[in-house]
Write a protein that binds this DNA or RNA. Structure first.
Ligand SMILES: [Zn+2]
Length: 508
DNA sequence: CGCGTTTGACCAGCGC
DNA sequence: GCGCTGGTCAAACGCG
């Protein structure tokens, strides 16, 4: 019936706005009344008929009128029910608006507080710990905690997005800390230990830079940006959308796992390279280090990594992001940096580190997707405790979204040097997991809360400190370390997105 | 046959 | 200068 359709419309309109919905209901009532009147008129319009026919007709009319009466009663009852429902929804709408307004108020006040605190503590306190929890009562403390912010809308720069993500915020925990060399010896030692244990040559990678990879920018090779992605991945490489050609393999001194060297083959002459190596302490962790600048637009599938790199850049080089040089430039010093990547979904724990070492004047971002933030502070001998799920990024739903250009390792057969513990796996499984990992990376990076929180929390902080700055110069960027040469300017930034209590991992 | 991988050789940087 | 190590080259090889 058309009436039922109209009722459906009413229900939908109620969601849009209570006033609108009420108007529509009133119109509906008027239409029903008109229909009833038309029915009555039709019943009166039959003047010329025989007597017997009239009798029959009268009986029929009696039955019909009784039915009509019943129908009318039903309609009025339906109307009243609808009215009641509408009133109820109106009340609900009011409540919701109130909640939204209060949330916005809280968000604004917190934003103000945050700005003030950042301005104050930037000068006097080298460490900032910013915590964004779904649980408003949770407080994480570190030594010299300067500010703890609890916000159900951890997107101070993007209020509209904060509004949309209220439900997800319940599960999001994002902590951000900054520590300096001078005040955090213990932590630095841990970080060094991590670098040594996970990839022995990682620090040397920073030191050594090949002159063969030339950027158009006049920046010294030693200042080239590197992005290292650590992820649990059974496949020999993680899927990042680009096509790579292997040009070498080495067995490092302190790591029996061979390190593979790849060159980007998306465009001829693309200088981007990546090194892939398994973590010594946990063979399921794949360490991929990207280096160089793509001289071509990124493939569709590469946008996931690009998004992550962009987020990492937001974290590490905020000035570049603020000036728009990274976002607007399709070719940046970062191997993956592309603004066209949107995959808003939940993500698991992530650690992003920027290691700025004044001695070698290089920048390295380490993105940790291993779902085990504590692991990095453990010694290799005691770090074999695995998460509950070996590969938590595997979606519980097998029909996860597909990524365009699903090339696995450039379509190459990589079963030759596969880790023994994964020999039993099918390539299709790798595809699924790599794709999921890619989604995971994309989710982390494109999460507006993540990016906004990082950008808002750090931008003002960094801009006043000795920190690397990126300047746009044509199509290339110049990366500069702003340190004055002293060791005290060796900052190590740590960003952790911790899993919620009792919810170690998120699934799609 | 073309393309990509493998793998030993080679080179450069660094420390002693 | 020598040895060590990381990074790269390129001929050989394998696969479709
Ligand atoms: Zn490329």
């Amino acid at each position: 019936m058309g009436k039922e359709e109209r009722m459906t419309q009413i229900d939908l309109s109620l969601n849009l706005g209570s006033q609108n919905g009420k108007e529509l209901v009133e119109e509906e009532a008027e239409q029903v009344v008109e229909e009833l009147e038309v029915d009555d008129q039709e019943g009166q319009e039959n003047p010329a008929c025989g007597s017997e026919e009239r009798k029959e007709r009268r009986e029929e009319e009696k039955d019909a009128s009784a039915g009509k009466f019943l129908q009318e009663n039903l309609r009025t009852e339906e109307l009243s029910v609808l009215q009641m429902e509408m009133d109820r929804m109106k009340e609900e709408n009011k409540l919701l608006r109130k909640v939204v307004e209060e949330t916005m108020k809280d968000y604004r006040s917190l934003q103000m507080k945050l700005a003030v605190v950042q301005q104050n503590d930037t000068r006097k306190d080298p460490q900032i710990f910013l915590s964004l929890h779904g649980d408003a009562n949770t407080i994480q403390g570190t030594r010299d905690v300067s500010e703890v912010v609890h916000d159900k809308n951890p997107a101070p720069l993007l209020p509209s997005e904060a509004k949309n993500g209220e439900d997800e915020d319940e599960e999001l925990e994002l902590s951000l800390s900054m520590q300096t060399h001078a005040h955090q010896h213990g932590r630095d030692d841990n970080t060094k230990e991590e670098n040594r244990g996970l990839e022995p040559e990682q620090n040397n990678l920073v030191k050594k830079e090949s002159d063969g990879i030339t950027n158009s920018s006049p920046e010294p090779p030693s200042k080239k940006a590197r992005i290292t992605v650590r992820a649990r991945c059974p496949a020999p490489t993680i899927y990042d959308g680009c096509q790579w050609r292997k040009y070498g393999q080495k067995i490092a001194k302190r790591n029996p796992c061979p390190r593979a060297y790849y060159r980007c083959m998306v465009a001829p002459g693309c200088p981007v390279k990546k090194q892939v190596q398994r973590c010594l302490e946990d063979m399921s962790i794949l360490i991929t280090t990207y280096e160089g600048t793509h001289n071509h637009p990124l493939p569709t599938g590469a946008c996931t990594m690009a998004s992550m790199a962009s987020a990492a850049a937001t974290f590490v080089w905020p000035s570049a992001v603020n000036s728009g040089s990274i976002i607007n430039d399709g070719r940046t010093p970062i191997p993956y940096c592309n603004p066209h990547s949107i995959s808003p979904s939940l993500h698991s724990s992530t650690t992003i580190k920027n290691i700025i070492d004044p001695r070698n004047q290089s920048n390295q971002i380490v993105v940790d997707l291993t779902n085990n933030p504590q692991q990095q502070f453990r010694l290799p001998s005691s770090s074999h405790s695995r998460p509950e799920l070996a590969y938590p990024w595997i979606p519980t739903n097998p029909s996860c979204k597909t990524t365009a250009g699903a090339i696995v390792n450039g379509g190459h057969d990589f079963s030759a040097h596969q880790s023994p513990s994964f020999q039993g796996m099918d390539k299709r499984d790798w595809k699924v997991e790599e794709k999921s990992l890619s989604d995971n990376v994309s989710a982390i990076a494109s999460d507006p809360k993540f990016r906004a929180a990082v950008a808002a929390a750090i931008t003002s902080f960094i801009s006043t400190r000795d920190s690397p700055t990126v300047q746009s110069k044509g199509s290339s960027l110049i990366l500069r370390d702003g340190e004055g040469g002293g060791n005290s300017s060796s900052n190590k930034w740590l960003l952790e997105s911790l899993p919620s209590c009792g919810k170690p991992y998120w699934h799609f």
